[in-house]
Amino acid sequence: MEALVTFFEKSLAMKSVLMDALLETLTMSLVSTFLATLIGFVLAIILITTDKNGIAPNAYTYKFLDVTINMLRSFPFIILIIVLFPVTKFLVGKHTGTFAMIVPLTIGTAPFIARMIEGAFKEVDSSVVEAAKSFGTSKFQIIFRVLLPEAYPSIISAITLSLIIIVGFSAMAGTVGGGGLGAVAMNYGYYRFDGIYIFWTVFILIVLVQIFQSIGDFLYKIIKH
């Protein structure tokens, strides 16, 4: 009984630290997902267009992007953050803190999102593209009037998945100078050995991921025909 009371008293005292951390995690994840999706989308369109079965095949462009994306994706994320410190410092002015972490999060996940969106485009039945060509649709229109609407639900799924991965990455970023729930778990939970901090950060992360996944599933369900 006494233990339970201590638990609640301690938890209540953590409230403001946890709330701030949650806000930082949300900022990092959502802004990074937004930026990484924009970059990933452009990369995916270049990939799908220059693919050997694409509407304007270009082996050199495809190969260059393909190798670059694979290279970026082979970095363990925590190493990538450190490698990108100079770039982050150049762009944001410093390499620690919530905003600074948006740089490695975006660069680290854009290639992943590019691959996911490329996959969503590839899922579109090639004969639909052929049909569109058969009534004289231009290449530009094929991308935006045929491929994009057909791939839309899968792209939403891809963004949901990426957002959840970025939440996980942002917690990792917290351990090397970023803010957010990861930093709280590290600084209070690990270094001060306070199990209650660990409990609450994990609990909040679980709830957060559940909410994101449910929203993603709901959106998919209403737009998928």
Partner: peptide, 21 residues
Amino acid sequence: LNSLRSHIGMIFQNFSLLNQK
């Protein structure tokens, strides 16, 4: 070629409709 194609309709074995429309 696109303008010629506008004078030629085509249908396919697997219909090739846009499922999202």
